[in-house]
């Protein structure tokens, strides 16, 4: 009943599909970023690796583009390769690009462009297996366009969001801060501005509008959070996973006089033993897929009376 789509290389640590499910980006423990494409986009049946780039070498090239070959080799020896722990695609309005969170806490942005359109020089000698999947005369390449590095704290997670003013990137740092960056030029992923404020323009700060925890459960470690796409419901649905299970919350859309939103916990789904790794809503927000350290994939749905239950589970086997 299952169909195999992609064979991943040894050492792959994370993977992510793009908006249309036609490209897969995978990161590996030795710092390679691989891109997989389907030869026949209509069938999207088998995917093959079309690009493989090594992140730390590109970063090196980005930092010191003028090194000659020997210096570069020396520098390579000094820069420790670092694994990629998470890959996230940008929204498609900003091109074919991904953000990689690395094990050493750096965050790098990569994009696929035709050679020469990116102004970072001397990158291609490093890109060892770059191939143009469309067969164009101009070769396409994955290039590093920005690297965020901080000595004091590490990037743990990253997400993108499109707002009226443009693309925002929210990065979670190990020092407990969330930093919101805004892209300055929608055609270039190089220039980001760190935003000090957002959301509440009048006060120039973030304001909490709702708290998704029952009084007893405050302080529980949250493993994962997932917002359901809202195709027209008068409330948002949010899944919050803790060690007590997956809580489903309804969040009102209209703030009260204090600016707070009404919240209601509509279900607690238990089934996963241990940590919940990931939760994903389907396109209509009707089915929640989850996976966790118990090694199973579970699907959750609600019945006509609004009662949530586990609809099916999958257990990987050889």
């Amino acid at each position: 009943m299952e169909k195999s789509l992609v064979d991943l290389d040894n050492g792959t640590t994370c993977s992510s599909w793009n908006y249309s499910g036609q490209r897969l980006a995978a990161g590996s423990v030795d710092g390679f970023l691989s891109i997989f494409d389907s030869r026949d986009p209509a069938a999207s049946s088998s995917f093959t690796c079309t690009s493989k780039s090594r992140s730390y070498l590109a970063q090196l090239a980005c930092l010191c583009p003028l090194l000659n070959a020997r210096d570069r080799e020396e520098a390579e020896g000094e820069v420790h390769e670092t694994g990629i722990v998470k890959v996230v695609w940008t929204p498609p309005e900003f091109g074919d690009s991904v953000a990689c969170v690395c094990a050493d806490g750096t965050l790098s942005l990569w994009e696929e462009v035709v050679e020469g359109t990116n102004s970072i020089p001397n990158l291609h000698p490093f890109s060892r297996h770059s191939r143009n999947y469309l067969g164009n005369t101009q070769p396409l390449q994955w290039k590093l366009c920005k690297s965020f590095k901080s000595n004091s704290s590490q990037v743990l997670d990253v997400q993108f969001g499109v707002s009226l003013s443009g693309l925002k990137m929210v990065a979670a740092y190990s020092d407990g801060h969330i930093r919101v960056y805004e892209l300055l030029d929608p055609l270039e992923l190089k220039n980001w501005q760190l935003q000090v404020w957002e959301f509440d323009q009048a006060h120039q700060r973030w304001l909490p509008v709702a708290e998704l925890a029952l009084p007893d459960n405050k302080g529980d470690q949250v493993y994962s959070v997932a917002w359901a796409p809202n195709i027209g419901r008068p409330y948002e649905v949010i899944a919050v996973a803790t060690h007590k299970g997956i809580a489903l919350w309804h969040l009102g859309l209209i703030p009260d006089t204090d600016g707070r939103l009404s919240v209601e916990q509509v279900a607690v789904l238990s089934g996963h033993r241990g940590e919940v790794w990931q939760m994903e809503w389907d396109m209509s927000g009707m089915t929640l897929a989850t996976t966790g350290s118990d090694g199973k994939v579970r699907l959750w749905q609600s019945n006509l009376n609004g009662v949530w239950h586990e609809q099916a589970a999958f257990e990987p086997t050889t």
Partner: peptide, 21 residues
Amino acid sequence: SVVYPLRHGLKPPIARLSISW
């Protein structure tokens, strides 16, 4: 709910699952 097998043909152990619609 019924647990369905998900055959992947890989040699164990499995370190991580990741899902995407």
